[in-house]
């Protein structure tokens, strides 16, 4: 399995620390899961292992209300499940939620090598929720992720990074 992006665990943790991220709430997939050891061992970042993606968004909302700076990591399959929580936190509570969503089979879908329907629906659903997003392919780095986070927080807007897998 090739790395989905130019973001490895150490560079991710360094970028998150640089942004002042206090909590990572996640449900890993096989790509994001490679960051587990680095996130677990980062002394300034608390890793919260949620059971479901909507729940992860609810936890992040509480952390933001309490003055902390969380990000949420999940796969697109869980993102599909989390719609109601996303709608509420972004459009009712107007909180600047920052998500990193792994898009399963993204590259295979570009080459028509998969029957996986995840990549077909991910971007249309993000657009339907009216949330700004960027697709991160392999050339994007942890510094790019940090820049995107800073920009979203500076404008008090939510943001979704779609991490091509």
């Amino acid at each position: 399995m090739s790395a989905p992006t130019g973001i490895d665990g150490p560079s991710l943790v360094a970028a998150l620390k640089d942004c002042g991220i206090t909590h990572v709430i996640w449900i890993p997939d096989s790509h994001l899961g490679k960051w587990d050891a680095d996130l677990s061992n980062a002394p300034s970042i608390d890793l919260v292992r949620a059971c479901r993606e909507g729940e992860a968004i609810g936890i992040a909302a509480g952390l933001i209300l309490g003055g902390k700076k969380p990000i949420v990591l999940m796969q697109c399959t869980g993102f599909f499940e989390a719609g109601d929580a996303l709608r509420n936190v972004v459009h009712d509570l107007h909180l600047p939620l920052f998500l990193v969503v792994g898009v399963r089979s993204y590259y295979d879908y570009q080459c028509r090598r998969t029957q996986d329907t995840c990549p077909r629906f991910t971007e249309p659903i993000v657009r339907a929720w009216e949330i700004p997003y960027e697709v991160f392919e392999r050339d994007r780095t942890a510094d790019d992720l940090a820049a995107s986070y800073r920009q979203s927080q500076a404008s008090n807007q939510p943001k979704i990074i779609l991490l091509a897998e």
Partner: peptide, 19 residues
């Protein structure tokens, strides 16, 4: 309220971790 279905306890968990 308005809420997301079932997320009150999750929101409370996040707030409790923050405070």
């Amino acid at each position: 309220m308005p809420s997301a279905m079932g997320e009150g306890s999750a929101l409370g968990l996040g707030l409790a971790l923050a405070q």
